[in-house]
Design a protein around this nucleic acid. Structure first.
Lengths: 191, 191
DNA sequence: TAATATTTCAATCGTTGCTAGATTGTCAAT
DNA sequence: ATTGACAATCTAGCAACGATTGAAATATTA
């Protein structure tokens, strides 16, 4: 039955196209500009077709967010690989996280600000969602006994730095100092 | 000219009513439920009346956010007043901030997540917006030389903790440990 | 009381997310 | 090849949104 397979392939391709288009518009303009009608027009199908792939708009945002989590985990992994020491790894992880968030604000927004219905604390939390957190855990592990709490706290600190800088509430020129401070604090805290 | 004054008073009262109603609906249901139509119905005026007070919906959210910033600053002030030592003040400030954010999620959302057009880094930043940050600065000052950077970083860490806990991405039962860790890190870092 | 200014509203615009029902196209069985 | 069933797709439309226009009603002044 090659027919069913071809159809499945075409559907998967269209789904990829929808997600890529949504991301593209969001990054080029804003998430406000990502409307079902706009997406339909761009992929050259009518609106109901989108609902054959996603149950609502939030689901499309969630699909983009998932891409973001995978890419973030990959970048954090790369950063650690280049590191010369545990201290260096911690610093690179932090800097890479912030760089990711601030260089792709729309993607980051999908991951952390917009409603997506993605589950985290759950047992059935998707692997992509865990990967980034795991990378942070690995980075802090050499410096503490309770890596999980420290990792959660570092993640929160980085997220907060990203959000406050993204909304112009803290001074951009002090970013490096703040990153240094966070990394240094973890080394010094010894939790 | 008592007439103009009476009218001004009535207008101010109606404005207060609009903001209070918006906040009430947001806290009881969600910001999604706060529509211009709904507000108009609740205050028993037609929709265009709202536009005599606020130029758009975001402006109403901003008005609620301003209330939030005032209340946050007040609570942080109270917390510091009760403190027995600089360490205690730092801890209380952090705990109070998190408690504020998590006990009034809708209010906090208006302050930090929803688009409001409120200016921060600016020279003409409103006093209410600075007050909370100033309280944090005072709390960290005894422990560091560069209070501004440290205050920005602590603020970010607290904001991140609030946001990640609000969206169920970190474990609620570890909250106290994370607060302890953050406070301890600032004492240890000596920046 | 008549003229004027202000306040307020009903009605409407353009857009949104989403869906029902009609229509088209595709495929397997005759 | 023709037909009938099934799936894919579209046109049209719903209800709700933020925001605005121009007319009616009310209040103020002369």
């Amino acid at each position: 039955m090659g027919i069913a397979e071809r159809k499945g392939r075409e559907k998967a391709e269209r789904e990829t196209l929808i997600v890529a288009t949504a991301r593209q518009i969001a990054e080029a303009e804003s998430w406000e500009a990502v409307t079902i009608r706009r997406l339909a027009r761009e992929i050259e199908y009518s609106q109901p077709v989108l609902y054959a792939h996603f149950s609502n708009r939030d689901d499309i945002v969630a699909a983009v967010a998932l891409q973001g989590f995978s890419e973030l985990a990959a970048q954090l992994g790369e950063a650690v690989a280049k590191a010369a020491s545990p201290q260096d790894a911690l610093l690179r992880t932090s800097a890479t996280y912030l760089d990711f968030a601030l260089s792709r604000p729309a993607l980051y927004e999908a991951m952390f600000v917009l409603p997506t219905g993605l589950l985290f604390g759950d047992a059935e939390t998707r692997q992509e969602l865990r990967a980034g957190f795991d990378a942070i855990t690995v980075a802090v592990a050499p410096f503490c006994d309770h890596a999980e709490v420290v990792a959660e706290t570092l993640w929160a600190a980085l997220h907060g730095l990203a959000e406050l800088e993204r909304s112009n509430r803290i001074r951009p020129d002090l970013r490096d100092q703040r990153i240094m401070l966070v990394a240094q604090a973890i080394v010094a805290a010894k939790a």
